[in-house]
Design a binder for these strands. Structure first.
Lengths: 253, 253
DNA sequence: GATCGGTGAATTGTTCAACAATCCTCATGA
DNA sequence: TCATGAGGATTGTTGAACAATTCACCGATC
């Protein structure tokens, strides 16, 4: 075989990059054409996260492919994308299903989040500029949503809050891992009874943590966050224990 | 407390599950036939990790597919799999390449590892039985490899050591994340000059950490590990900085 | 009546061939 | 030297096909 594979040619054509052009680099993401598989994955992710596709539901390749107007092969690529995010589980020869987090998953989710987010908060003094401000923005978003009684919006803002906390670590990999954990957590919320009462109380807590961050009292912020996790996890575990879960899942056949 | 393990709906046939059957559940993984894509991914992963496929190498769909005797579609599935592990990078309309970690990746890698592994060590008192022993096994494996001058084996044992440390957290997600980080780190080693001198000194350090773990002196173990990270990271960063290897690395667009 | 076993439809796993879209190389011309 | 196309090579995506597997249904048996 080709052991010694060809490396991409170095020293490519070096275009005259005036510094002004650098400003455009931000647009790159927008211009970047995405593959159909990715767009399909985006669409499905949305449906899963907002609950249109319930946990445990099976996603038929043929039916979905026809509905979305893509081929089975492309759809499979999208499935794999979401499988990696743990939103779908792929069972060999059996198909893909929307993931059904169980109690053990909830506990595990919080274990990893605790490690990563606490570490991020503790090193917030070395965070890039604007990172703490973004935490504040998420707090305000949550307060606004709570003000107009939009509890789903509160949940979304809450996610953004924690994503912003993770971003304090200034680490792309931390960002990615936490994003995945939070998406999974959304799935957990669908399995519990009263998401309204779950999200809302944390608005005030978020505000407190942000204030501590702004004042540079990182250790206190970390402790506050740790308590936060304790409470939230316990609440989720309770909700999961009493909940008989998955009642009346009609299998469409 | 044992929820439905894998079947979404199971109402009717309740087999008399004697407790003895539970013991078999461990075998399930072994029986599970893997898809061709997964096997292809395994083969490629091996070649990447042991260096047969150098960082930056481009993997042609047609050529590789023919060489491995699988269709392009299946090969693409395997590419996706390895892309998620960050061993391959997929550039739209351009193909897949073996990842080329840069300095920033090294730093990021260590940042996440530090957070997760330190957290795991600190909660080692709540680890499942045998977890600390597995750390010890990795230490001995490293010592044996060092004894016979097998520095690549030392590197492998080192990976296993850190994987075992992460396992102290008793968290499947931590395991998975760390496994991915370590695989990526292997790639980094290929880009540096003298891996021999890099791995060997840590054998003694691993032994010290394991001893502290056994004695339950977790905080000291964590501190030792933290120093470990400091040294290793600095060494890697240096190796990356002086290394002329990456010169003329054209920024991928 | 419940369990076991087989039959057949439905679904997934995998391959193949084809075409469109895109990128890369290279020759050409100013 | 630099820009410009044209052509070839490679990837993105589709649709169809077939093998392999699962699942639901239906008797046969005790």
């Amino acid at each position: 075989m080709d052991r010694d594979a060809e490396r991409p040619r170095e020293r490519g054509p070096r275009v005259a990059t005036s510094e002004g052009l650098e400003a455009l680099s931000g647009l790159r993401g927008a211009l970047e054409r995405s593959s159909t598989a990715e767009r399909v994955a985006d669409a499905l992710r949305e449906r899963i996260i907002d609950g249109a596709l319930a946990p445990g539901a099976r996603l038929s390749e043929e039916a979905l492919g026809q509905a979305l107007g893509v081929s089975r092969n492309t759809l499979r690529e999208a499935f794999r994308l979401l499988g990696h995010e743990r939103l779908l589980v792929h069972r060999f020869n059996r198909g893909v299903f929307v993931a059904e987090p169980e109690l053990a998953d909830v506990v595990d989710l919080y274990r990893v989040r605790r490690a990563l987010e606490l570490d991020a908060v503790r090193r917030a003094d070395r965070s890039p500029k604007g990172a703490v401000a973004r935490v504040g923005a998420a707090v305000e978003e949550g307060e606004a949503a709570a003000g107009r009684g939009d509890w789903w919006g509160v949940g979304t803002a809450n996610m953004r809050f924690h994503q912003a906390l993770a971003a304090l670590a200034d680490s792309p990999r931390t960002d990615e891992v936490v994003r995945r954990l939070l998406a999974e957590l959304r799935l957990v919320f669908h399995a519990m009874a009263a998401p309204r009462d779950f999200h809302v109380p944390y608005v005030a807590l978020n505000r407190r943590i942000h204030r501590l961050l702004e004042e540079g009292r990182l250790e206190e912020a970390a402790e506050e966050l740790s308590d936060y996790f304790d409470v939230a996890e316990r609440q989720l575990v309770e909700a999961f224990s009493e909940e008989p879960e998955g009642v009346g899942e009609p299998d469409p056949r």
